[in-house]
């Protein structure tokens, strides 16, 4: 493999990391509160708002059921509005963020629903406000699940980012298609796949370790001894 190709691989890796990191971060900032709202406005919960809950749920489902490649094209005007262009890495980040936000929201919602209702009642009995219930009970108790959900999201985003080449976003997937598929350079394709595997493994392992550390419901033996 020529030095040129190695340089291209490195550049593509950085583009992928850039796209995944930015879209993952922005989607978390938007998706976690959205997940919280989906839970607390649900029937019988601390801030029940049935109409709002139904509207948000429908929007989330609509975005999630749109194929990414279609979503990317469909929101081009919006993308141009936000980042000023419809091509390039920045232009790919917008649809990636929009696709990941409802994904995160649903995963966060699922984790928050796992929190025992008895805990909510216990802090209600202390006189906690809805905001305190979210901050002191729901989020901390669901944190291991939320971290696991964010890990899944980052892995999915890495996969989605391969389609960014469609809008000239670059990245590993795009490189693999252009060199490996369109120019029949199998070694480049193989290198891309290996880097992606390592990347995904790394993200997943880091997420698993973090989620386990945060989970105090099951205390590891060694950790318990160390205390």
């Amino acid at each position: 493999m020529s030095q040129h190709v190695i340089f291209q691989l490195l550049e593509a890796l950085l583009e992928t990391l850039h796209m995944v990191a930015v879209s993952g971060t922005v989607a978390s900032v938007l998706g976690i509160p959205l997940g919280v709202i989906l839970v607390v406005t649900g029937p019988g919960h601390i801030l029940e708002r049935r109409a709002l809950n139904r509207v948000l749920g429908t929007i989330v489902n609509a975005v999630r059921s749109t194929p990414f490649i279609i979503l990317m094209v469909a929101i081009i005007p919006f993308t141009r509005l936000v980042v000023g262009t419809s091509i390039g890495t920045a232009a790919a980040i917008v649809p990636l963020t929009i696709a990941a936000t409802p994904f995160i929201a649903r995963l966060v919602e699922a984790s928050l629903r796992e929190v025992d209702h008895g805990l909510i009642e216990a802090v209600q009995a202390m006189g906690a406000s809805p905001l305190q219930i979210v901050r002191k009970v729901l989020l901390p108790e669901a944190l291991p699940g939320i971290v696991a959900g964010l890990t899944i999201t980052l892995v999915s985003l890495t996969g989605f980012s391969a389609m960014a080449g469609f809008v000239g976003g670059g990245g590993l997937g795009d490189l693999g298609i252009r060199y490996g598929y369109q120019r029949f350079q199998g070694d480049v394709m193989a290198a891309v796949v290996i880097i992606l595997i390592l990347l995904v493994q790394g993200v997943q392992s880091a997420g698993d370790v973090l989620a386990r550390r945060l989970n105090k419901r099951i205390i590891d033996r060694e950790e318990s001894k160390a205390r």
Partner: peptide, 17 residues
């Protein structure tokens, strides 16, 4: 409610604390 403490059958302690 702060003047009324409560304990529960299943304790309802926060596992993260």
């Amino acid at each position: 409610r702060r003047r009324i403490g409560m304990i529960f059958q299943h304790f309802n302690l926060l596992s993260s604390r």
